[in-house]
Amino acid sequence: MDALPGRSLPLGGGGTPSFLDHVRAHHPQLLPFGADIPAAAAQQAPHGTTIVALTFAGGVLMAGDRRATMGSLIASRRIEKVFPADRFSVVGIAGTAGIAIDMVRLFQVELEHYEKIEGTLLSLEGKANRLGAMVRANLPLAMQGLSVVPLFAGIEPGSRTGRLFSYDVTGGRHEECEHHSVGSGSVFARGALKKLWQPQLSASEAVTVAVEAIIDASDDDSATGGPDLARRLWPVTWRVTGDGAARVGQDELAAAVETVLARRMAEGREA
């Protein structure tokens, strides 16, 4: 995968707008799902967990916890699971961390390559379909326990309506309404989102809802890491509006965490 970010490979094939198709035809060994990986790797590979996404008035927001696990061990407390796909979309990863991160890099290059060849951005539907093709290509490894299940969100330039797309391990694409979550803590995060999400949330309110959903997931799922007050590690959070994708700052995240925890302490919660 080292060759992908540098884009040093010759185009060939008449300049196809799909970088994935080009690499598959000429250098399949560079694809993250083209490697020969031992079956035992599923037990030893770090896995990323909970991602949440929700719409708000004017866009869409995605956040991911910072924990990666390897069996019963915490492999990392600082992993990043949410990335900008391009200027108007973001992608979050759950599943085998190494393969997932390589898939995100490939997806980013795929979208950039399309824009350079065609001179225009790919539509949001087109981006969602391209990501589904990558997930489908990983199916043989998924059957060995090395699955990657992304969550994709974005907005069409000039629009104020965010859209969410989830996937299954076969690459099936499903558009979600209002909010969604993937990963080991998703069942708990999804329950929180159902209670907390409201139509026309403000951008700052959406951050607080996402943080609280991840805190709920971390409370019941050992593979999900909640906000780490000692290390000041907050969920990686990206917002997408008509102005583009932007990472939510540390100060805003810290304030959202403090708001949620202060309210819970004041309520005297025990469960």
Rank of each mutant, 00 (worst) to 15 (best):
T237I: 13
A189V: 03
H180N: 10
A210K: 13
A192P: 00
V209W: 08
R263D: 14
A230S: 12
C177E: 15
P157L: 11
G145H: 10
I214G: 02
T224G: 02
G191K: 02
V236P: 04
L253A: 06
E212W: 04
P150Y: 08
G249R: 00
E258M: 11
A192R: 07
A262H: 14
D228T: 11
Y167H: 06
A189K: 06
R263W: 12
L164K: 02
F188Q: 01
C177V: 13
L146N: 04
A223D: 14
S181V: 00
V149D: 09
D251H: 14
R163D: 03
Q144D: 13
V211T: 08
V207W: 00
V260T: 11
S202H: 02
S181H: 03
S202T: 15
R232H: 13
T208H: 05
R160G: 05
L164S: 02
V209M: 04
S181A: 15
K195I: 00
W197C: 06
R173I: 07
P227D: 02
Q198W: 11
L229Q: 08
A255F: 08
P150A: 02
R163C: 06
W234D: 03
M143K: 15
T208G: 03
D220C: 01
G191P: 02
I214Y: 05
A210N: 10
H179A: 06
W234S: 11
V257M: 12
D219G: 02
V149Q: 13
